[in-house]
Every structure is written in C-alpha cells, then in structure tokens.
Amino acid sequence: MELTAGDVIELGDTGVRVVAVVAGRRSPGVEAVLRAHLAATAGVPADDVELDHACAECGARHGSPTVRYPTTPSGGRWFADAAVGGGVVVAAVGTRRPLGVGVEPALPDVAPIVDEVALHPEERQRLEALDAAARPLVRAALWARKAALLRALGHTGVIEPSRIAVSLPGEDDGVGRIVRTVPEFGSRWDEVRIHDVPVPGRLAASVAMLPRP
C-alpha cells in the first residue's frame, strides 16, 4: 500500500509521525499499514522492513515490535507500533523514544468490573463526576492512553492498569502524563508523554512515548 504526505500527523516536536487508516473489507491489516508507514518515513522499500514481535525478555508476542530494519543513517533505532479499533488502524514511528499505540471504541454501556480492572480509583471517581453523555469518549481516551503506555513498556506491561493513573483527557491539551505511578516504572516516570491522536468515529487513539533510552 502507499501512504501520502497528507495522511501523516506530526505529534508536535517529538519527531513521531502517525497515520490513521480507515480499514475496509479489502484494506491492508495492521502489520501492512505499519510497514508501509515506516518504509515511507525511513525511505526504504516496505518489503525490506523487518519487525520482531517477540518480547526480548520472555519471547511472547506483546508490546510494540522491535524494528530490526531499517536503522537511522547514524545506525540508531527506529521505534514503531500500530493498533486497530473500530475499523481504524493507527500506526506511529519515530527515532527518539520508545513508543506504543492504543485505540479504543467509546462504548455506551460498560460493566463496573471493567472499569475496576482498567482504571485507577481516582480515574473512576473523576469519570463518575462527568456528564453521562461525555463519559464514554473520556473513558475510551483513558483506556487508549493506558493501552498505548503498556504496549510501549512491553514486558513490564503485565502491570495491572488499575494501579496507575493518567491525567484526564480534556484537562491536559491532549498530552497525557502519569499522575499515579508504581515502583516498576522507576524514577523517570514523569518523562512519559501520551499524545492523543484524532481519529474518525466514536474512537479514541493515543501514542505513548517513554523516556529516551
């Protein structure tokens, strides 16, 4: 597949480039979109892109993939990830910071147990304080932010999402931060940034960026 410059979203001065592709019956899958986006950004053929989905610590397929090829002109790493939700594929690539992508639908009705598993008590309290009509999209944004964060973390992503809290969408200009952390995140958790990405439909999408390696 081919992606044009008009498809690309630049996330401020982060150097991260994002595409959102509406998936149809004959549209390419998540992997194909990610390969095409990385290839177009790096200036290499899509067939040459090498992605390793195996976790470096346990070998399981979780978290964002490791880009084996291409490398940057100086021999540095590319970071890349993609996710799909509600028929939209979101892919992000960059060279500065490890990243992860999350896409979540805004559901009108959610069982309380789902929020208990996914959201920190502070997040649940603030969500309940919102107008009922606004709640589904804000909930989806919180879920997307956490999904992106845990994919960026990879193996550490086995942490229960309810143990951490992120800033509330709508109060941070679309760039989320961790506001309640866990010891597993170490001392640089305050450098994490989670950028919301505009997508069509009743969906929320985010790209999480970890501190520089």
Score class of each variant (00 low, 15 high):
Ala56His: 12
Arg177Gly: 13
Val158Ser: 09
Val16Thr: 14
Asp173Ala: 15
Arg61Asn: 04
Ala83Leu: 05
Leu3Gly: 00
Leu142His: 05
Ala165His: 00
His62Gln: 08
Trp78Asn: 01
Leu3Gln: 05
Val101Cys: 03
Ile9Arg: 12
Leu127Phe: 07
Pro169Cys: 08
Val33Met: 02
Pro211Ile: 08
Val114Met: 11
Arg151Gln: 03
Leu99Tyr: 11
Gly29Trp: 12
Val88Leu: 13
Met1Gly: 15
Ala20Asp: 03
Ser187Lys: 05
Leu153Ser: 10
Ala36Trp: 08
Pro98Ser: 10
Arg180Thr: 14
Arg96Met: 09
Arg61Cys: 02
Gly94Leu: 00
Ala83Pro: 09
Ala147Phe: 00
Tyr69Glu: 11
Ala144Met: 00
Ile159Asp: 15
Glu123Lys: 11
Asp109Arg: 12
Pro45Val: 05
Pro105Val: 09
Arg145Asn: 00
Arg193Ser: 12
Asp81His: 08
Val89Tyr: 09
Ala204Asn: 01
Arg202Asn: 06
Val182Asn: 14
Ser74Phe: 01
Leu168Cys: 01
Ile178Arg: 09
Arg77Ala: 15
Val88Lys: 10
Val158Ile: 10
Gly15Asn: 13
Val110Glu: 04
Asp115Gly: 15
Met1Val: 12
Val117Ser: 02
Ala106Arg: 10
Pro211Arg: 13
Arg151Trp: 01
Ala148Gln: 02
Pro211Thr: 06
Tyr69Pro: 05
Lys146Asn: 01
Pro200Gln: 01
Asp173Val: 04
Pro65Glu: 09
Ala5Tyr: 00
Val89Asn: 15
Gly176Ala: 14
Gly170Ala: 10
Arg212Phe: 07
Glu10Gly: 02
Arg193Ile: 06
Val179Thr: 15
Pro73Val: 01
Leu137Ala: 01
Gly201Pro: 01
Ala92Lys: 07
Cys55Ile: 05
Ala141Phe: 02
Arg97Thr: 12
Ser162Thr: 05
Gly176Val: 04
Val18Asp: 00
